[in-house]
Amino acid sequence: MNLKINGRQVEVPSEVETVADLLAHLGLEKKIVVVERNQDILQKDDHQDTSVFDGDQIEIVTFVGGG
């Protein structure tokens, strides 16, 4: 499946079916992130139930602390 993630075309395995699966595939499942799918911001509780489809546009924002 081909997704556009943060402006880059990325090929992901067919096992990636939900936003939660995608975050796990990218190693971000334990990070605090905001996910936008096709210009809709998702609540964290919806990651497990929101499917991803070929051609979806995904934006993932992670938070970085510093001082």
Rank of each mutant, 00 (worst) to 15 (best):
G7R: 11
G27H: 09
Q39L: 02
T50N: 03
K4D: 06
K4M: 15
Q9T: 14
S51E: 06
E15F: 15
D46P: 00
V61Q: 14
G27S: 06
G55D: 01
N6V: 05
D56I: 06
V35R: 00
G66Q: 02
R8Q: 13
F63W: 06
F53T: 12
E29V: 00
V12A: 13
D45Y: 05
Q57E: 11
Q43W: 05
K31H: 11
G55F: 00
A24W: 02
V61N: 13
K31T: 01
D21F: 11
E29M: 09
V19Q: 08
H47C: 03
N6H: 09
V64C: 08
V12D: 04
F63I: 02
Q48N: 14
K31C: 10
D46C: 12
L28W: 07
D45E: 08
F53H: 15
V12I: 11
F53Q: 14
L3V: 13
V19N: 09
E36Y: 13
D49H: 12
I41L: 08
D56R: 01
A20D: 07
I60F: 13
Q43R: 05
N2D: 07
V64H: 12
V61A: 13
Q9I: 15
D45N: 08
L26I: 00
H25G: 03
V52F: 07
V16F: 06
D54P: 01
F63Y: 04
E59Y: 06
I60R: 05
A20Y: 10
F53G: 14
A20C: 11
G27R: 14
T18G: 08
E59T: 09
V12E: 04
D40N: 10
L22G: 09
K30S: 12
L3P: 04
E15K: 15
D49W: 08
E59I: 14
G67M: 03
A20T: 03
D40V: 04
E11S: 15
P13A: 12
V61S: 10
L42P: 00
Q48D: 09
I58D: 02
S14G: 10
H25R: 11
L42C: 04
Q43V: 02
L26Y: 14
K44R: 11
I32W: 05
L3S: 10
V35E: 01
H47E: 09
I60V: 07
K30V: 05
D46W: 07
I41M: 09
K44D: 08
N38C: 04
V35D: 01
T62H: 15
V61C: 01
K31G: 05
V12Y: 14
E36D: 03
V33N: 10
S14W: 05
L3W: 06
H47P: 04
G55W: 01
D21W: 11
D40L: 04
E15T: 15
Q48C: 10
D46H: 08
A20M: 04
